[in-house]
Design a protein around this nucleic acid. Structure first.
Lengths: 254, 254
DNA sequence: CTCATTGTTCCGCTATATAGAATGCACATT
DNA sequence: AATGTGCATTCTATATAGCGGAACAATGAG
């Protein structure tokens, strides 16, 4: 096996970010001792890093002497998304899809070999397909992901094909099937996931393009299979495709 | 002169976060040299920190060899907001409202087409308007709910309008009246419930916003109509509105 | 009043992050 | 081709920044 060059990481930075992540994921802050135990750091080390994070505004001391994450991390992260102001550009079409299908609508972008949901509208039907905003999924098994994969397939193929983990019994697990599926997606203009990530949850996705042809993201509809009647599949696919191309046109005007 | 405890900061951590912030604020990534120049760091230092950030998933190399922020920072920030303790941020203002009005004060968030009370302060007056913490109410007939409804009206209108159940003889039951009421709420800056959920129990509500304008929740005052004298309505409405905007500002500083 | 636990400070040592120079790459310009 | 420019990346010797551990303070419980 080829030896990876093994990236050199600054321990201070990674510990600091680990603390930040930990604090961000907790409802109410934590004390120094707890934190250090959970992260396997010494108390004094943890304390010092917390001081730094506090000075930088990422962490605040609660009146009860606990440490808690501030909204600064959120503001930083927000500016990342803002710089792709996709949400604004896509919101009307998400709404339209929601009204037309009454199912759960997602807006997603690619992040390496995953997709991340940056917006969604809940299904109004009792059975929901649940996925949080900010959640992630592998690019090769959900509708939005497959749409994005097809866009950059030459770039991504080898890396994706080398790592096809199964999530359900329908997940694509061999490169040949992947090739075929991507080709079908390109031909049809939108992607179909037949329950390849979550059992019995189907999804449809289509890509959104920037004016220069680059791929900006994808939107999709997620549907529990029992909600899907005869012919619904084609209808939803067409809706998704139309919505995505409309958003792409909107981006031109921005 | 008073000696400030002079916060001790870990330089590695602060430099790393500075890089992250910088990258997050740029539309398309940057090269090592540019970054180091803008931040006043050496190239090799910048390079090393970028390696670390990449290994931790906060930064990615674009195919054109530039470095760009991933959405990880955003995901971290997102979880801050999700775990954000609105109760803590709002508690002082709830108390203030309680002292000013002596009536029952509520803090609520939206959950689909209902609102859920996540905190309250009991009225000190003998006649109470009763609702438990954790209890729910339809979004279109109480003060806090109507404030939240007005925020996301485009998204919610059709669904809400399709299901207007009457609870009292004042409950809004047709879509036209709902439109009008929401418009009035928006104009006035706070919502009024004239006993539309419980007979003779009026309420007032105003929305709380995150720094980017997203709606975080709402707070409100509930008043039995016999407690309400001439002019009290305007006074309480103004108080509620002011309290909500103060909490919103608090969130900014968090 | 202990005793137990947490937050904070101090300090000497060494692993760590650093600066700066050297190397390697890609592409213009001649 | 040959040369030059600007970039990313690697190397290395050195100073110091960050580290662990233990001491100290401040709580709070029993």
């Amino acid at each position: 096996m080829s030896k990876e060059p093994e990236p050199r990481v600054d321990s201070t930075l990674s510990k600091g970010l680990a603390i930040l992540e930990k604090l961000s994921s907790m409802k109410s802050g934590s004390g120094v001792s707890d934190l250090s135990r959970e992260l396997g750091l010494t108390k004094s080390n943890t304390f010092r890093l917390l001081q730094t994070l506090t000075a930088l505004g990422y962490v605040r001391r609660e009146p009860d002497r606990r440490y808690a994450a501030t909204l600064k991390a959120w503001q930083v992260g927000r500016s990342v998304v803002e710089n792709l102001n996709l949400r604004a550009a896509a919101s009307q079409m998400l709404l339209y899809l929601s009204e037309e299908t009454k199912e759960t609508i997602y807006l997603a972008v690619r992040d390496g070999l995953n997709i991340v949901y940056i917006d969604k509208i809940e299904s109004t039907k009792p059975i929901r397909s649940w996925n949080p905003i900010g959640g992630a999924a592998p690019i090769y098994c959900v509708g939005t992901g497959k749409a994005l994969l097809a866009e950059d397939y030459r770039l991504l193929r080898d890396e994706v094909a080398a790592n096809l983990q199964p999530f359900t019994d329908r997940t694509i697990t061999d490169a040949a099937a992947l090739d075929k599926d991507v080709a079908a997606t390109k031909l049809r203009g939108y992607a179909i996931d037949t329950g390849e990530f979550r059992p019995n949850v189907l999804s449809f996705g289509a890509a959104i393009h920037l004016p220069n042809g680059e791929t900006a993201g994808a939107l999709g509809v997620s549907v529990p299979d029992i909600n899907l009647g005869e012919g619904d599949s084609d209808r939803i696919g067409a809706l998704v495709q139309h919505a995505a191309s409309t958003v792409s046109k909107n981006l031109r005007r921005l």
